[in-house]
């Protein structure tokens, strides 16, 4: 017969797991964006001739 405790375990751990991973990834992405912003603005205000400003490409797949 169906093992309902296993069903609920899979159900619960799945939802919690997915949210946890995505939330952590969101925080890390925001953190890295902030750090990279800082590095890039320092590079730009410093010696722009050494490191050309990074251009971004068009957001297309």
């Amino acid at each position: 017969m169906t093992d309902w405790s296993k069903v609920f375990e899979v159900f619960g751990s799945g939802i919690v797991g997915v949210y946890l991973v995505m939330l952590l990834l969101q925080i890390l992405t925001q953190l890295s964006t902030r750090i990279i912003d800082m590095i890039e603005s320092r590079n730009q205000s410093g010696d722009t001739a050494v490191k050309p400003p990074v251009t971004d490409d068009k957001g297309k797949v």
Binding site: V18, V21, L23, L25, Q26, Q30
Partner: peptide, 8 residues
């Protein structure tokens, strides 16, 4: 990055 939560 908020949209990561929508993916979840």
């Amino acid at each position: 990055p908020k949209t990561l939560l929508l993916g979840a």
